[in-house]
Design a protein around this nucleic acid. Structure first.
Length: 802
RNA sequence: GCCGGAGUGGCGGAAUUGGCAGACGCACAGGACUUAAAAUCCUGCGGGGUCAAACCCGUACCGGUUCGAGCCCGGUCUCCGGCACCA
């Protein structure tokens, strides 16, 4: 027997697959299509870590299995290569980011090839390739033309270290997601995308998708729909509009609060008696960073506006108006009616500043705390609402407000528009020019795309955070495509999320220079059948790309309203010490070494066997060795193969059971138990001391998706026909997965006391008589009367006796 | 605080969804082979108890439903992930 040498063997098959274009795919209407997608990596300078191959191996197993089952499988790979780390590396080492990207991609690609994934490399895409970002820019132009891209001066989350504005989604605990620096607020003019216009569609679309529940709820929470009403209060001759989810508590509104940024404050300047105090508070609130807002104890602060009072429209009472930073300008109307009896924040505020608290929903104890239950309370102190339930009161008051013309139903979302511009070099240039004469931003004609990134002297952002492109006078100066007059180019670039928002479409037709993909390719391959990725992308990439796709669908460009039919998620791999892998902890496992020492097949098997796919799990070197042992034991089976074509009689049931288990477990991403079943079957072969050709063939096929190299080698050595990757996935006979005789437990009073061997479909009389014939059972039942007898065929016998 | 998810041997983890708890793997112990070690093969491996058995206890904790509960119900604790002054 040839010794098992993973190094030469794996190289050999990787080369054959390449030469044979084994995994290249084209449109083929004679087969069902299957589009398997994994998140394309950012090619960092560190290369792959052992976390990357986990989802890749998982989808590779499913892709390989589906091919064997007769599907036309699209399983592509590419590079999400724009972004800050590359740019920072370029600045530090004075190398062009494109060069850095090229090197990193080459390294990643060779590492992926080393692991034997069945990607169709002819469809490789790279977001930094002009022939790719031409279409990223094109999609932006469509958004711009439909009014969904607009420029606005907003307070952006500013990272002083990265010198870049961040989207809300990129701020974690008030700090920059990437570098951890506390985020500051800066007023900046930014490109924005109106994702809010799609808020409802993004919720509704989830309904029919096969996404894991966590992803659905996280997206729904992030979008944050709430139903309530807008109500107009009169104040100093103006209408002060508020949003509330509790219009039923209107009689309990004892004061109002405006956000410090509310524009009315400037308008009321002359009438406000304590304007100095108000201004002081406004500047104090402005200086608070996001970090301080989240970290500081939520002690309420605020100032009463003196000289102006509001009128509660429902009872004509005059109530004071305060300003406080617990009211946000960016949600609702920037002003609220405060009902301290029934809102915990208002309650805290009222207690601190000694404001009146009026109970309008009975059922709690407002001496102690705000009563916020909406299920059980009854309306009191509320005029015509008295005696109603909260739900009825809501309806009644909104009706009344509508009749009076001072309020109406309103739905709000927490979702904000997407801050789309970055003041950085290594991103897609935004293809618009500013033209004084035309009075604003003008889209570049589509035939001028791609708008290439110009060569610059320095990739460093300007001192005030302006884009490095702003220094490129020659490039910035241009002519307006509409009027032909002088115009200047936009110097901001797009965020990293742009290129990844549509890459799965490009894979369908990656070389098309007429459209982002042909109609034919789009209609054949859409939607992605199965997309696996990290939970960390739930509210970023996954939401953004669903938004773009829904927009493209509305424009008639893509054929399906949703991009991804199914979404699953993998767990992280921790270091051997149970900590998150990081350079500073020194617990990083390098896949190159694992593959060199044990081989790609072992590495792949271990990554799948490590534990439940969706959960985090610590790496274990001895665990890897266990999988290597499995591979070698399978290898040694070749000396035990008999000439028999079918299954041997005593293993027939085991064979069918294992085929079934592996088929179903792989599809359900229960790789650990699927592999465990294969190990158990191997143990049976060893116990028997032989394996038939028929058994060997099926066994290799079942292992092949997980460990494709050595199974291909053994297939060849044993003289099976063709390539294993082209062979047909084994089928099982349901009837043969169950053996006729079963061992079932006999319980007395629910405690297992004996095991009997009977027919699977034996009758109750039969089962009980066999059970009672057991000496031990007979002994235990002696002198007792049987109260009840339970028999579940194939499962259990339970005798209750006294 | 709110929304998700989870607590099972020394460890990673199984359990047909209410039917023999601990599959499979790791670690460990004993044995075989070897001059020896490694590798490999065989055996054992939740705790108590016994010469061995019988038997008792055991799935975070307290209680309940059931012939029978890791799984269902009520309550408590702990951990992980997400959101967080969103009116």
């Amino acid at each position: 027997m040839k010794a098992y040498n993973h190094i030469t063997l794996e190289k050999k098959w990787q080369k054959i697959w390449d030469d044979e274009k084994a995994f290249h795919v084209e449109i083929d209407h004679s087969k069902p299509k299957f589009y398997a997608l994994i998140e394309f990596p950012y090619p960092s300078g560190q290369g792959l870590h052992v976390g990357h191959p986990r989802p890749y191996t998982a989808m590779d197993i499913i892709a390989r299995k589906r091919r064997m089952q007769g599907y036309n499988v699209l399983f592509p790979m590419g590079w999400d290569a724009f972004g800050l780390p590359t740019e920072n590396y370029a600045i530090k080492n004075k190398i062009h980011p494109a060069e850095v990207t090229k090197n990193n991609v080459a390294r990643f690609k060779s590492q992926l090839k080393m692991l034997g994934f069945s990607f169709d490399w002819d469809r490789e895409v790279n977001t930094t390739d002009p022939s790719y970002y031409r279409w990223t820019q094109w999609i932006f132009l469509q958004l711009f033309k439909k009014g969904l891209a607009y420029k606005k001066e907003i307070a952006v989350n500013w990272c002083p270290s990265c010198k870049v504005g961040l989207a809300n989604e990129e701020v974690v605990d008030g700090c920059c997601e990437r570098c951890g620096t506390p985020v500051e607020h800066r007023m900046k003019t930014q490109w924005m995308l109106k994702i809010t216009e799609y808020a409802q569609k993004l919720i509704d679309g989830l309904q029919d998708l096969d996404f894991i529940e966590r992803v659905k709820t996280q997206q729904i929470n992030w979008i944050g729909r709430s139903e309530g009403a807008e109500v107009d209060f009169k104040a100093a001759g103006r209408t002060l509009r508020v949003y509330t989810t509790r219009p039923d508590t209107l009689f309990g509104a004892t004061y109002m609060v405006m956000s410090p940024e509310h524009p009315y404050i400037d308008e009321w300047k002359d009438q406000i008696e304590n304007i100095d105090e108000i201004e002081a508070y406004r500047s104090y609130a402005r200086s608070k960073s996001d970090f301080e807002r989240t970290e500081l104890a939520k002690e309420k602060t605020g100032v009463c506006i003196k000289g102006i009072r509001a009128v509660n429209p429902v009872n004509g009472k005059e109530i004071p108006i305060w300003i406080s930073d617990y009211v946000l300008m960016s949600y609702g109307t920037g002003a609220i009616m405060a009902v301290p009896a029934h809102d915990t924040r208002d309650y805290d505020f009222a207690k601190k500043f000694d404001l009146p608290i009026i109970e309008v929903v009975a059922g709690g104890d407002i001496e102690k705390e705000a009563f916020t239950d909406i299920e059980t309370g009854t309306m009191v102190n509320s005029g015509f609402l008295n005696g109603m339930s909260v739900a009825d009161a809501k309806k009644a008051i909104v009706e009344w407000l509508s009749e009076q013309g001072i309020g109406h139903k309103k739905v709000n979302y927490k979702l904000r528009d997407w801050v789309f511009s970055r003041q950085r070099y290594w991103g897609e240039p935004i293809p618009v020019v500013y033209c004084e004469h035309c009075g604003g931003y003008v889209a570049l004609p589509e035939d001028q795309l791609p708008l290439l990134l110009p060569e610059v002297e320095s990739y460093e952002p300007g001192p005030n955070g302006e884009s490095p492109l702003a220094g490129m006078t020659e490039w910035v100066k241009t002519t307006c495509p509409v009027c032909g007059g002088p115009a200047s180019r936009e110097t901001d670039t797009m965020p990293q999320w742009a290129g990844s928002s549509w890459y799965f479409l490009r894979y369908m037709d990656p070389h098309n220079d007429q459209a982002l993909a042909s109609k034919e390719a789009l209609s054949y391959w859409s939607p992605v059948d199965w997309y696996n990725g990290g939970m960390e992308h739930t509210t970023l990439h996954l939401l953004y790309s669903r938004f773009w796709h829904k927009f493209l669908y509305d424009q008639g460009i893509v054929p399906t309203p949703e991009p991804y039919q199914k979404r699953t998620s993998h767990g992280m791999i921790l270091g051997e010490d149970g900590q998150k892998m990081s350079k500073s902890r020194g617990n990083v496992v390098n896949p190159d070494e694992v593959v060199a020492d044990y081989g790609a097949d072992t590495m792949r098997l271990y990554e799948m066997f490590i534990g439940d796919f969706a959960s985090t799990a610590p790496w274990s070197t001895t665990g890897v060795k266990g999988c290597r042992r499995f591979v070698e034991r399978v290898w040694k089976l070749q000396d035990m193969v008999t000439e028999e074509k079918g299954f041997s009689q005593d293993l027939e049931s085991s064979m069918h059971r294992t085929i079934k288990k592996v088929t179903l477990d792989f599809e359900a991403m229960k790789f650990n138990t699927g592999i465990a079943a294969l190990m158990a079957l191997l143990n049976e072969f060893y116990a028997k001391g032989s394996v038939t050709r028929g058994e060997m063939k099926v066994f290799l096929q079942l292992i092949n998706p997980a460990a494709p190299h050595f199974t291909e080698e053994m297939w060849e050595m044993l003289g099976f026909e063709g390539r294993i990757y082209q062979s047909e996935w084994p089928s099982y006979d349901e009837a043969k997965t169950i053996s006729d005789m079963v061992e079932i437990a006999v319980q007395i009073m629910g405690k297992p006391r004996a095991i009997i061997r009977i027919g699977r479909t034996a009758s109750q009389e039969e089962a009980l008589s066999v059970a009672k014939a057991e000496p031990k059972i007979r002994q235990l039942l002696e002198g007792k009367t049987i109260v009840k007898e339970i028999y579940v065929p194939g499962r259990i016998v339970n005798i209750v006796a006294k």
